[in-house]
Amino acid sequence: MSTHPPFRKVFEGIATREQMFALFNRHSDTPGVDPLSGMPYASEWFEIEAGEYHFMLGLLPPLFQRTGMFGMSEYKAGNITSVFFAIRIRGRERWYHGFCDLTDKRSPDAMRAAIIAHETGAVDSMTREEKLEAIWSATHADFRGIAGETNPDAWPPEHHGKRTIPTYVAEQGTTLKLLEDMTDEEIDSRMPAVRARSRRGAGNDAEPS
């Protein structure tokens, strides 16, 4: 059984600044939940304007920052914090906010992949990067890895920190491979299962496409 978080889009359209701040506190008056735990917010996401992304980036020193992503140093509650994404989808830059549970350090990457999968529908017009993100998201956490994390000698130093995934290679069987090194044929062979999983998961998303 999959333990993938039930990522949920909670607002249709692009949130204004006022709407964004309202969504930050959308569970404050929800009966029967404990907003102080942060858990009601975990895995929720919505689209924002570029201005709100940059406004929040300048508000506080980020907890972490890398290309197209940063996390807020002020936690919502517990281990739940806001993560902001700049994602190019079909040639157009778009911006998103999501609440990630950082007890799972891969949560921001999984959130990003889930947003891409939702916004593209995993259709044939997906770019190579979008397909790789969708494959990563659809792969069970037990089979996703980080090169050099548990066995540094197994990977050259320049590959440490990159994502790995089991891949079938002719005459070698199933072997670990860098996600970024998957061939187009290997990607295409995985996409039918990714699409099927995306369709099954859509029923659990608030505001599905």
Rank of each mutant, 00 (worst) to 15 (best):
L176S: 12
F143G: 00
A113W: 03
R88F: 04
D101M: 13
R112K: 13
E119P: 04
I115H: 02
E49N: 03
M20R: 05
Y41V: 06
D109V: 13
E130R: 06
I48D: 05
A196Q: 06
R17A: 13
M72W: 13
G58V: 02
G173F: 03
D205Y: 02
I116S: 02
R112C: 13
K9I: 03
I87A: 09
G78V: 03
T164N: 08
V10A: 01
T3V: 12
R17I: 12
D29C: 10
E149V: 02
G38M: 08
I80P: 00
K131P: 00
A42E: 10
D142G: 11
E93T: 00
G201Y: 15
P61A: 14
F11G: 10
Q65S: 11
T167S: 12
F85W: 08
Q19G: 09
A113N: 05
N204W: 07
Y168D: 10
S198G: 13
H159Y: 11
V83I: 10
R197D: 15
S43F: 03
F143N: 01
P5G: 04
L178Q: 09
V83P: 05
R88N: 04
Y96F: 06
E74C: 07
F143V: 01
M111N: 07
F55H: 15
E171M: 08
R197N: 12
A206S: 10
M20I: 04
S198F: 11
P40V: 07
G91L: 09
D104L: 08
E185R: 09
F7W: 06
E180S: 10
P152M: 04
H4K: 14
S125Y: 15
S37I: 05
T103G: 09
R26Y: 08
A42R: 04
R195A: 15
